[in-house]
Computed example of a mutant assay.
Amino acid sequence: MSSAVIAKPAMRGLLAKHLRFHLAVAFILAFSVAGAFKFIVTDSRKRAYADFYKKYDAMKAFEAMRDAGVFESVKPKK
């Protein structure tokens, strides 16, 4: 009858070993998600705002709102 010897589990330093690995993975994932968010969301949003304000005429919008009666203190143009 042969009995196999089972190795003892490595308990000393196990938490530190796992934390080191998981912290590294967490930082890599966090920075990659932040970079992706910056390039996908914020850059496209900045581009959309820039395109809007290239064509935006504040006086034309003000006159349209004034004629529609949005403002209480400004009389509509007749």
Rank of each mutant, 00 (worst) to 15 (best):
K75L: 07
R20L: 13
K17S: 14
F37I: 09
R66E: 05
A24C: 11
G35R: 02
S3K: 06
K55L: 11
F62W: 07
P76A: 04
D51G: 06
R47A: 15
S73I: 11
E63S: 02
A7C: 04
P9H: 04
F27P: 00
S32Y: 01
S44D: 14
F27Y: 09
G13S: 01
R47V: 05
K75Q: 10
F37N: 06
S44H: 11
G69I: 01
R45Q: 13
A68G: 05
A7S: 10
S73P: 00
A4S: 10
I28G: 05
S3E: 09
K78I: 10
S73R: 10
G69F: 00
M59I: 10
K54Y: 00
A4P: 02
P9G: 04
K8Y: 06
S3Y: 03
K60M: 03
D51A: 15
M65F: 09
S2M: 03
F39D: 04
F37P: 00
S73T: 12
D67S: 13
D51F: 02
R47Q: 15
A58L: 08
M65W: 07
F31R: 08
M59L: 13
T42N: 15
T42M: 13
K55C: 08
L23A: 06
V70Q: 06
V5R: 11
P76Q: 00
D43L: 12
K78N: 13
V70G: 01
A64F: 01
K78M: 13
K46I: 13
K75G: 01
F31S: 11
Y53S: 01
V25W: 01
A50E: 05
R45M: 14
H22Y: 13
R45F: 12
K8P: 04
G13W: 00
M59Y: 07
E72V: 08
V33W: 01
M11F: 11
S2Y: 03
A58T: 06
A24M: 11
A30P: 00
I28Y: 05
A24E: 14
V5P: 03
R20E: 15
